[in-house]
Design a protein around this nucleic acid. Structure first.
Lengths: 120, 120
DNA sequence: TAAGCTGGTCACAAAAAAGTGACTACTGTT
DNA sequence: AACAGTAGTCACTTTTTTGTGACCAGCTTA
């Protein structure tokens, strides 16, 4: 069953529907405990699978592989396999992934405001 | 057990830690299937409980009450009870909640880019 | 030869999130 | 008197997400 996230009985105007859809899409793409951090780390420099397990404490290989796969399927990151021995893999942001960086940046800005507001 | 989301054995520099923390805070505050939409609807105009159940198709009263409560506890929205009869309740954004609107806006911008990228 | 590195997959268990339906208590309408 | 609307709460079930530990195959180092 499709999730429209708006009421089909009293259909909102199309510009409202568009805002709801675009917001929900971004939310879904970022849904996952490690995804925002993964995108941010990969934006700093291309990252390898093993390096990400070291950067993120407590992440399991299973969920790391799964969330990387989902980010790849959503077109945010790409995977490059180097056939050197021992072989290695590098994850980098796609253009679409780069375009997501403003979202990460404003999230960080707001997080700092939140911390400030709690320290008063 | 606290979730630092960074590696305590090889502690990253403090400016990196700060970015990780602020990003994770914002992520946690927005975590919940309906929260971004709730914030957006409330930013359009003060909203009542019943109106929100009508705007959001399929949301249950239980989860709506829970997510509103969490947003209130996090200081993003405030609840005003009017003692008229029949009594009514209105939810509005706090200052901190208003400051979150840029996050919602860039999420919507990116969602539109994502839709465009998929239509090619 | 054994252990450690590379980057994973898989089945299962645990935890977290979300949904369901009944119930509350008050007022206004029919 | 019965039903609708106000805004919820509560116990329970279902669904989704995350974590756990074993396993794989090829290579390097001690």
């Amino acid at each position: 069953m499709a999730k429209f996230n708006f009421n089909l009985d009293t259909l909102p105007p199309s510009e409202i529907r568009e805002e709801i859809c675009s917001l929900t899409i971004t939310q879904n793409v970022l849904q996952g405990r490690w995804k925002p951090l993964l995108i941010w780390y990969i934006s700093l420099q291309p990252q390898r699978f093993g390096e990400l397990t070291r950067l993120l404490p407590g992440i399991s290989k299973g969920i790391l592989a799964k969330q990387l796969k989902e980010l790849e399927d959503d077109g945010l990151i790409q995977k490059e396999i180097f056939d050197e021995l021992p072989f290695k893999v590098e994850y980098t942001l796609t253009d679409l992934g780069e375009q997501l960086l403003p979202v990460i940046a404003v999230m960080q800005d707001w997080g700092k405001k939140y911390i400030d507001s709690r320290q008063k």
